[in-house]
Design a protein around this nucleic acid. Sequence first.
DNA 1: CAAACAATACCGGAAAACCAGTAGTTTTTT
DNA 2: AAAAAACTACTGGTTTTCCGGTATTGTTTG
Lengths: 210, 210
Amino acid sequence: MLDDHLTLAIVDDHPVVIEGLKAVLKERAYINTLSFTAGKAFIDFIKEHTVDFVLLDVMLPDISGIDLCREITGIAPDTIVLGLSNQAERSIILQMLHNGASGYLLKNASAEELLGCIEEAQAGKIVFSNEVKTIMAKPSRFDLRGMPSLTRREKEILRLIADGKTSQQIAAVLFLSVFTIETHRRNIFQKLQVKNVAELVKVAAGNGLL
Amino acid sequence: MLDDHLTLAIVDDHPVVIEGLKAVLKERAYINTLSFTAGKAFIDFIKEHTVDFVLLDVMLPDISGIDLCREITGIAPDTIVLGLSNQAERSIILQMLHNGASGYLLKNASAEELLGCIEEAQAGKIVFSNEVKTIMAKPSRFDLRGMPSLTRREKEILRLIADGKTSQQIAAVLFLSVFTIETHRRNIFQKLQVKNVAELVKVAAGNGLL
DNA sequence: CAAACAATACCGGAAAACCAGTAGTTTTTT
DNA sequence: AAAAAACTACTGGTTTTCCGGTATTGTTTG
């Protein structure tokens, strides 16, 4: 930012959204708006030019918003990226933040909300639109206090599950009945509030239980 | 180590193993040997006394070797811990190292091997007995070069799998046939060389794909 | 422009996971 | 010693995964 202008890029494959955002952003005369409908085109662009700010759709045809976000912050670490999407899924939001985004907005955010978030993000804050805030605010699962404590047996079985062992195999290794393993498995599911092994392993890995 | 002696603790629930190790360690007069058959007893001990070196069985009755290892290195960070086990499973070895162990030995290691490893670990190295070395040396999966690259679609589906979605649910979200999802799923399995979602999610999480 | 890769879709069958219970035994804690 | 927690085991049933193919249509790319 050599002058007092701000270069803002919209990356979204939906032309209507682009036009809507541009209209809102006209409110702020100091913002120069660019737009891209594909991730690759944008990547090529920032290799040659400087962009201060990006509004990035997470559902793009040619590349996932998450990967794109990582690439952008890799190439231009000073660029501020805000995720933009129709529905807010907690895991996606976290992935975006984890890959360098400075915030996350829903497309149904009001004009004031949008401009407010841009200004706050510009000031270095992490911003969310209101709906996103409510999603991020609540439990997650057990974000802060107390990962539910698993018993010895449960941890042991959890590790074997994560190693890809079937209940039969686990039963064989531990000299127990398959039924016992399945009972333990269900208890673990309940404690960690997951529905299947996929989620189980993700949660366990993310909380240092593996 | 205030003098030139070394306090070494053996933690193993098998008395025969303890005696065997003690016999081998007599070779080195400067090593004072202690032994424990339960993890908790040992934890209590190190809260009051200093131990320089621990040979730690990973299969203990009261606590998993992995958890115990973490506790030990938490309480006494200067203590050197070597894992000790009958069979070497790669994942367990990695977990031990990840929790602060300085190496891993198989119980069938020779006396020279054992003493050699203790001396090298004492000197700050990470040590493995020979058999363990061969296990650690080979493939792993794709440890060093090239995590196989997944396509956009595959990554997208991988994330949905890790979120605990079933193939039906994924198909519904992406407006695709269940068959398509299952094909992608199998392709992902093959690329990442896993047999089921549990392993898949573990590998993916461990390699930053989630 | 081929060749390779990506994405889509389908079939049938075996194995495993998942669900909702119940219940006895052992270990730990109060 | 009583209560609580952990560990064990079983029944019976539904859903999903996993395996082994095959095959068509685009899209990149050498």
